[in-house]
Amino acid sequence: MSGYLMSPRQFSALKTGLFLLCLVPLANLVYGLLSDTLGANPIEALTRGLGDWTLRFLLITLAVTPLRRLSGLNWLLKLRRMLGLFTFFYALLHFASYVWLDQFFDWAAIWKDIVKRPFITVGFASLLLLTPLAATSTNAMIKRLGGRRWQLLHRAVYAIGLFAVLHYWWMVKKDITQPAIYAVLLTLLLGLRVYWMLRRAGAR
């Protein structure tokens, strides 16, 4: 196989480094909360910060395949599972922050939000869709499902990407600059896949 430019030991060090790097945003937010530097509305800042990072990790995960294809660095693929699981991790924390800090376990209000507010509906849908992907991320599960079925299931990530961006877009009051940036990146990442798919279909 091409693209393995490092030894297993180096790769394992890289993976550990990446793991720790993925925890930095969380550490930053927790530090901000404890040192009271998240501004006047720390609960909102924390919830939104966790949401931002969920979306960022989702896009980073979706960038692995195109990056590998374009760069030829096949080992990138071996980092994808960890990045995907971090997406789920931040999504869970984002949801927990909403349920605990924002709504304080007011389940009636939360349920009303989910069914009544489109931006929360799609946000919750992305979390629900992410769950089976996280649950089937182990090698054993891939084996049990079989590669084809596993892959089919994990294509749900495209819908998750769309819902996640909509979740942000519909939430903002007026200035859509930030969600628009995420939308452009998502379009690019999904567009590349469509382009490659069409090219493959044309070549046949």
Binding site: A40, E44, F104, A109, K112, D113, R117, M171
Partner: peptide, 16 residues
């Protein structure tokens, strides 16, 4: 249309 107005967070307080 996009969120409830039934409760509010007083800045500086935890519970709404």
């Amino acid at each position: 249309p996009r969120w409830s107005q039934a409760r509010e967070r007083r800045i500086g307080e935890f519970r709404k």
